[in-house]
Write a protein that binds this DNA or RNA. Structure first.
Lengths: 229, 229
DNA sequence: GTCTATAGTTCGATAGAC
DNA sequence: GTCTATCGAACTATAGAC
């Protein structure tokens, strides 16, 4: 609905080109590592135009982040709604619908490869309230729907376990989406992190088994233990 | 052995104070977000002293990173060696020995809370070769030993599956080590990410079940599929 | 909407005294 | 080893013409 990522194949407006350039550079270098100058140069416009459209660097980052996360979340929830309406939810397909849109939308090979997954990771790992607020605003509503869906597929799953499970799924896959060659190196070439299907299929198997183990471990969840602040 | 994190309780040298301050600020703000000025101020020394000891900002970052990652890895491998010598390895205890040292060493409440896990995450998510090289130099050798250990505990695990399993374990736990309050929010208070025991015990259950599912899925791993470059 | 030009700040790094 | 002082470059943001 609102603000599609690419309305048509017609030539993009300069505002869209700025967002494209910002996404690429922010994903590569992080918020502090990318400069407004570089973004303007990559977009082929004057630096002042970025401030005209988005006022500040934070404003540009927010607009860029909202555009991409919104597009990915719409695909996720559309798939989830379809699966729920159809009935007979499995954990594996829930996980796939959660991860695949990020792999496919967040990695655009025609533009030289920029990885939105890294952006989510570094934003979430930032200790400042603005970044945390961005994550919450962009993802909490969707996350709650997925946690709910996991409990529909696995009725024995407690809310606490489903929450940790959701966070583990996100964390395990998001950290592996950018192909760094590390999996290749650690496995002596037996597998590759460029193989996104290997990642997605294994993530689904791994997560589904983990969640079923949570559901099987009904009693005595460790919530009563003292926090370690 | 070489360069313990805190030799004694005597007052730290100014070089150590610089490393402490650097770790805290780099973890909070990332490499680009923290400045040499702030670090010097937090350490209580002149900015020029940082350049005297470490030459450049990159040099300081590398020294800080090596000190902490080395300390954590020595604890990990000591525990792993002990368990292997004892015999009867379980996946759960392997996972615990991998994750607990980071939780305990990377989170120092007496200093106001700084999270080394976030630093690993943002460094690993950086697309530049220097950062990737740092990760490789600091962690690849240890990672290979853990992948080997996982296959000792689960002999049916292929090298490829063990590698993905290791990466999933690291990714799922590392992203949850800094208490952001997100688990609390998503679970409506049913659990808390300040509860590190809840994290560690669930990570072990989740990962062990995932790895056993890999070991049970012997044939036809999806390695033959075409990469998605 | 888009540009040029620039103000004002902050950064990493160095020179040189002690 | 540790300091003060400062250079030169890069940054975000704005003013103002078109």
């Amino acid at each position: 609905m609102s603000e599609p990522l690419a309305k048509t194949r017609a030539k993009p407006t300069s505002k869209e080109e700025i967002l494209d350039a910002a996404e690429r550079l922010f994903a590569r270098c992080g918020f502090d590592g990318a400069s407004m100058r570089e973004i303007a140069q990559l977009a082929g416009v004057a630096q002042a135009l970025l401030h005209y459209h988005f006022r500040t660097k934070e404003g540009l980052f927010e607009a860029m982040f909202a555009r991409r996360s919104g597009a990915i979340n719409r695909i996720r929830l559309a798939r989830l709604d379809t699966m729920i309406a159809r009935g007979g939810l499995t954990v594996e397909e829930i996980v796939d619908s959660l991860l695949r849109p990020t792999v496919e939308a967040g990695y655009d090979p025609t533009r030289g490869g920029h990885y939105f997954a890294n952006l989510i990771l570094t934003t979430g790992a930032s200790n400042n309230p603005w970044a945390q607020g961005l994550i919450a605003a962009s993802y909490d509503a969707m996350a709650k729907r997925y946690i709910e869906a996991l409990r529909m597929a696995l009725p024995d799953l407690s809310l606490a376990d489903a929450t940790w499970g959701y966070l583990f799924i996100i964390g395990s896959a998001l950290t592996q989406m950018a192909p760094t060659g590390r999996a290749d190196r650690l496995s002596d070439g037996a597998t590759s992190d460029r193989n996104t299907e290997a990642l997605l299929s294994r993530a689904a198997i791994f997560a589904a088994a983990g969640l079923r183990a949570f559901a099987a471990t009904r009693p005595a969840s460790p919530e009563a233990e003292t926090p370690t602040p």
